[in-house]
Simulated scan of single mutants.
Amino acid sequence: MTEKLSDEARGPLLDPLFKTGWAPVDGRDAIEKTFVFNNFIDAFGWMTRVAIWAEKWDHHPEWNNVYKTVNVVLTTHDVDGLSAQDAKLARKMDSLV
């Protein structure tokens, strides 16, 4: 079962992500990042690779794509906030760029 991140777990899981461009979302227990690619094909290809992992892990991002830019928000709706699954998916997204 997925649990909301405890105060103690937030620093070790989220601080490394903040160093790679992830940021807290104002007014929500969520993180966000904007990914910019060379063109639409690169952006859509990356989204496809992420989608495979998201489906495998049953953890899906809130995202939108306009041409070469993909805006991502991660949160776990089942716990109404951030979970370890969000940090895991964020790390995977960063590794697939």
Rank of each mutant, 00 (worst) to 15 (best):
D58A: 12
K88R: 11
I31Q: 13
I31T: 02
P16F: 02
N71P: 00
P16M: 06
H77W: 12
A23M: 07
T75W: 01
L17P: 12
W57A: 12
L13Q: 13
A90S: 07
L17T: 06
R91I: 04
M93Y: 01
K33R: 15
M47P: 04
V25N: 01
V79Y: 00
W22R: 04
R49Y: 09
L74H: 05
D86Y: 07
F18T: 05
Q85Y: 05
E8L: 09
M47C: 13
V73I: 14
E62H: 10
G21I: 10
A54H: 00
D42E: 15
V50C: 13
V25L: 01
E62P: 01
D86E: 11
A23S: 15
K92L: 11
A90W: 02
A9G: 09
A87K: 00
N38W: 03
F44A: 14
A87T: 03
A90P: 07
H60S: 07
L89T: 02
V72C: 11
G27D: 12
S83C: 10
R91T: 14
V72D: 13
K33N: 08
E3N: 08
L17V: 10
A87Y: 01
A87Q: 00
D29Y: 01
A43I: 11
M93D: 00
F35H: 05
G11E: 15
H59K: 12
A23H: 02
S83R: 00
N38Y: 04
L5D: 00
Y67C: 10
H77V: 03
T34A: 12
N71M: 05
G11W: 06
V36D: 09
A51T: 13
G21S: 10
E3C: 03
M1R: 04
F18E: 08
G45A: 15
I41A: 15
D86G: 04
I31G: 06
L82M: 13
T34S: 15
T69Q: 14
L13A: 14
A90I: 09
G27P: 02
E3P: 01
I52W: 11
K33G: 03
D15G: 07
L74W: 10
V70Y: 07
A30Q: 01
W22M: 09
D42M: 08
L74V: 06
L17F: 12
